[in-house]
Design a protein around this nucleic acid. Sequence first.
DNA 1: CGTCCAGGTCTAC
DNA 2: GGTAGACCTGGACGC
Length: 268
Amino acid sequence: MIFLPPGRVDLDDSSYTLTVRIGGRLRKLRFSAAGDRLAVAADGKLLSADAREAREIGVRVFRLNDDLSPFYAAIADDPNMAWAIGAGRLLASPTVFEDVVKTICTTNCAWSATTRMVGALVELGSGAFPDAQLLAKTPERWFADVARMGYRGPYVRAVARDVARGHIDLEALLPSRAAALDHPEPIEARVEETLLALPGVGPYAAAHIMQLLGYHHRLVLDSWTRPTYVKLAKKKRAADTTIVRAFARYGRYAGLAFWLYLTKEWMT
DNA sequence: CGTCCAGGTCTAC
DNA sequence: GGTAGACCTGGACGC
């Protein structure tokens, strides 16, 4: 059992299942809300070390370490955003690496292509998203011929190789760990710089990954969010700089406010 | 069948 | 620092 933080954790169909690899074994985890706690159940018995890992996955996926109370306080008197109090805990993947790879798979292609590529990756991982080691040792031909990832294949493989070799530590970009980095001051800027240095990660992808990491300043601007904003704001058109300015009042939560503004109708 | 473009990025000016 | 062109793929569209 995991204590839930203030705010909501909405589970479709009251539970959420996730297949992951723990201790080298494929495990199916089932998360369900139980009062003020999140329950985790696994298929089969979990050793204590495995149970701890399952717990950590739950904390990461449901963003239970994120404290959005400053954001909620900021929108309390905002007629446009007050509805979002308790929301904004965007579902993440078990690892930052997985979110980075998936995000690269959303760039410059239709959503159907993204799901196809990610589906192929999960199949490679026998039902769980493959870790960096597995992707690094998978031949380039697989990325091109099976996953049909096109020019993204070499990008993803290069990221996987650098992570597998220990050249970069994407998991260290999480706020809970980034605070311990050498230069704690502009953490968010350093994280963004690190992400932008990854092949296949540009302004859109970096902003998207940072939202999932818990850095909410940047706006995710892409071919879906732009027209959606124009429509909801009843504008004829809006330049990126104009959109950024419109959400600047939300400070370090500008990106989250933008995303919630766009997806309000997703909430029932 | 050719062109366009979808939840962009990279390189070369 | 800002801006064209190329880039894998495949579904949608016009002819």
